[in-house]
Amino acid sequence: MDNWQDKYLCPLIEREKFSLKKVKKLVDDFSFLFIHSISFHEPPKEPNEELPDFTSEDTDMVYSVCREFYNDANERIDKLEEKAIKLLSYVSALFAFISFAFINTSIILTKLILAISMVLLVLSMLISFRCVNVKGRKSFFVPDVFDFESDIPKDNFDKKVISKKLLNSAIYNQNIGDNTADILKAARYILALALIVSTIGFITGIGGYFKTSDATTTVKIENQVELKDIQGRLDIMNKTLEQISNNINNLDNEKLQEEINRLSNELELYKTNYESLLKRLENIENSINIEGN
């Protein structure tokens, strides 16, 4: 006896076999969608012919079905807009990551490949923006139930008439949804291509991200003459202080106070000179820091 699952349930989805024809079809599909997504589009058009009037007497059923068609068409466009916004967030996050990798590699080939992937991501962003806040939808409003061509507007709330207008609007909006889906599909194709290109870039430059730099930073000081002048003055002052210290050790107690007063005046002078030298050294240090930055 056959298993009821094999008999009454859908069969499992099998893996599609690889073939060059399918690859060529995918490339042709991508080329067509890419050109379509970056091109200017004409305004949506009405069908060449409208569907005939309803003949069913069950007006409630007719209205219910047409209303469902109308809601489904609008909901489809809303969901496509949500998918486009999510795709923009994914592309933005990936762009930030690739930009970080681009900045932190020194390999020219890797930079070139990552730059190509970033260009593709920007293109995917721009195409995704076309799927946000879609314009041109046909809505059901006051002119659909009132005739304003006469002097006094006349209403028409016949269920068959309203159902027919809902159905025509659903057909019109489904066409807009199909076009939006094609544009979003092109953005996804470009995102996939950017992922492939960026992966190749990471592989070519993977060694550069783990390599530490042994280079030393050399700061060039251009005012060597001023530094030598300061060093010479400091040497003279050190020798003078050493000589003063020796003289103090050789002084008698009677002349000690007189010599201390003289030395105090000289120390005040040296203090002033030291402060002047300190300011000059700070200016040189600041200039070295600026040159290093």
Score class of each variant (00 low, 15 high):
residue 96 A to I: 14
residue 152 I to Q: 05
residue 177 G to S: 10
residue 262 R to Y: 04
residue 153 P to K: 03
residue 248 I to R: 06
residue 246 N to L: 03
residue 18 F to R: 05
residue 245 S to G: 15
residue 133 N to Q: 00
residue 61 M to S: 11
residue 275 E to H: 00
residue 293 N to Q: 09
residue 81 E to Q: 15
residue 137 R to A: 14
residue 111 K to Q: 05
residue 20 L to A: 11
residue 154 K to V: 08
residue 178 D to N: 14
residue 57 E to M: 01
residue 18 F to P: 05
residue 36 H to D: 06
residue 116 I to S: 15
residue 226 E to K: 02
residue 118 M to H: 00
residue 87 L to K: 02
residue 29 D to T: 04
residue 183 I to H: 04
residue 165 K to I: 02
residue 241 L to I: 05
residue 10 C to F: 12
residue 26 L to P: 05
residue 134 V to W: 07
residue 106 S to W: 09
residue 99 S to P: 08
residue 253 N to H: 06
residue 8 Y to I: 00
residue 13 I to R: 12
residue 230 I to M: 09
residue 88 L to F: 07
residue 190 I to S: 08
residue 99 S to Q: 10
residue 164 K to I: 10
residue 107 I to G: 12
residue 147 D to H: 12
residue 19 S to C: 12
residue 183 I to F: 02
residue 54 F to C: 08
residue 224 Q to Y: 06
residue 105 T to S: 11
residue 156 N to P: 12
residue 256 L to H: 14
residue 218 T to K: 15
residue 82 E to S: 10
residue 93 A to D: 10
residue 83 K to P: 03
residue 209 Y to S: 04
residue 145 V to C: 02
residue 114 L to T: 01
residue 289 N to E: 04
residue 178 D to W: 15
residue 246 N to Q: 02
residue 150 S to L: 06
residue 142 V to N: 08
residue 112 L to Q: 15
residue 123 L to G: 07
residue 183 I to P: 06
residue 104 N to R: 11
residue 27 V to C: 12
residue 211 K to N: 11
residue 109 L to P: 11
residue 136 G to C: 01
residue 88 L to V: 10
residue 108 I to P: 01
residue 50 E to G: 03
residue 245 S to L: 14
residue 204 T to D: 06
residue 21 K to A: 14
residue 35 I to T: 15
residue 143 P to T: 11
residue 228 K to H: 07
residue 247 N to K: 01
residue 178 D to F: 13
residue 102 F to I: 09
residue 195 L to M: 04
residue 247 N to R: 04
residue 121 L to D: 02
residue 54 F to M: 09
residue 185 K to I: 14
residue 221 I to P: 15
residue 48 N to Y: 03
residue 163 S to P: 06
residue 274 Y to R: 13
residue 98 I to L: 13
residue 49 E to K: 10
residue 250 N to V: 09
residue 146 F to H: 05
residue 109 L to W: 10
residue 242 E to T: 08
residue 3 N to C: 14
residue 183 I to N: 01
residue 95 F to Y: 10
residue 184 L to Y: 00
residue 161 V to S: 02
residue 20 L to Q: 04
residue 19 S to N: 13
residue 208 G to C: 04
residue 50 E to K: 05
residue 136 G to M: 01
residue 173 N to Q: 11
residue 105 T to A: 08
residue 271 K to C: 00
residue 221 I to N: 15
residue 5 Q to C: 03
residue 271 K to Y: 00
residue 172 Y to D: 13
residue 212 T to E: 12
residue 229 D to K: 08
residue 127 I to T: 01
residue 289 N to G: 11
residue 181 A to R: 10
residue 195 L to E: 07
residue 26 L to I: 12
residue 101 A to T: 12
residue 160 K to W: 12
residue 225 V to L: 14
residue 123 L to D: 02
